[in-house]
Amino acid sequence: MNIKTILASAALAMTAATGALAEKTKVGFVYVGPVGDGGWTYEHDQGRKAVVEAFGDKVETMYVESVPEGPDSERVMTDMALKGADLIFTTSFGYMDPTINVAAKFPNVKFEHATGYKQADNVSVYSARFYEGRAVQGHIAGHMTKSNIIGYIGSFPIPEVIRGINSAYIHAKKVNPDVQFKIVWAYTWFDPTKEADAAKVLIEQGADVVLQHTDSTAPQAAAQAAGNVITFGQASDMAAYGPMPRVSSIIDDWAPYYIARTQAVMDGTWTSTSTWDGIGAGMVGIGEISNAVPADVKASAEALRDSLADGSYHAFTGPLNKQDGSAWLAAGETASDYGDDSLAGMNFYLEGIEGDVPN
């Protein structure tokens, strides 16, 4: 083999290698909590790992955890874009405006924002119908409470959280008309100390069931220490606390969505979309109902889950009134996703819930 042939072969090999590197799709993830939170961020990172498993060396993923919602998130997103990210998932509501701002500066990068509502040509939004899972939790909670006081730890008073409170309440009330909800706002997604304190306050107020829309397992630990208090896993199964206090859970499964959207970028078919899936599509799962729940309650909860999944029942079906007694949904009417008084913009409690929605 002469020198020209050797050089030509080397050049072809280098070109092939360069092409292979160029084809690698870079995917970034911005997380509001630590990947070990046992809840929300943990499940998003499971989705990232699923992308790696699905595509192998065709993808390169990067992530930054515990990124505050606000200006610092713009810095993180910008850094990912400058590092060559083709697709960036921003996984908390408070990243909405930062995502839009950074996307405008990088029109060739695709962005996916979780739980928000602002889109652009290169920004999609996605969320899950967590309120369907809250309906199942409320059903179990209404049956299981002995004090008739159910506590709820809220993160921030945004529509996603308010929907969950309302859904849990009306389904607890359906099976137990004497149920009372007490709500403590933690004003954090992840702060184990604040979450534990919120759980303790609710337990001191008589709650023997505690639901949460925060991300750590601290409320589970507080309930376990108190004894005879029931909890539910949030975003992840939190099965380590089963069969008591954790008797079931809402599990967020982001993997299929993350894989599909990464594939779309690879195929060149990605477009800006709005996705809002629930139990039926598998984005919301109901964790195993433990043997601490009576068999008949478990069976009825599973029937409710199945009716939500197949669409034969909607979690918000009238008659339902707003907190002030004014009509919201007539008998048999179901809530709309968008528009006036819609689920997407829900900022009011339903009749029977005490207290005000914080501004």
Rank of each mutant, 00 (worst) to 15 (best):
K4R: 14
T15E: 10
T18G: 00
G28P: 10
E60F: 10
T78S: 13
A81S: 12
F89H: 10
G94F: 05
D97I: 06
E112G: 04
Q119W: 01
A120C: 03
S124Y: 05
S124R: 03
S127N: 15
Y131D: 05
Q137K: 11
H139I: 01
I140V: 07
S147N: 14
I149T: 13
P159V: 02
P159E: 02
G164N: 11
W185T: 04
A198K: 06
A199S: 13
I203H: 08
P219R: 07
T231Y: 09
F232N: 01
Q234K: 01
A235W: 12
S236V: 03
G242I: 02
S248N: 05
I250S: 07
I251D: 00
Y258P: 12
Y258Q: 12
V265D: 11
V265H: 06
D267H: 11
T269Y: 08
G278T: 00
A295F: 03
R305T: 11
H314Q: 15
N321Q: 13
W328K: 07
E333F: 01
E333M: 07
A335D: 10
S336K: 15
Y338V: 11
Y338G: 00
Y338A: 13
G345T: 12
G345Q: 08
I353Y: 09
I353K: 06
E354I: 09
P358Q: 02
P358W: 03
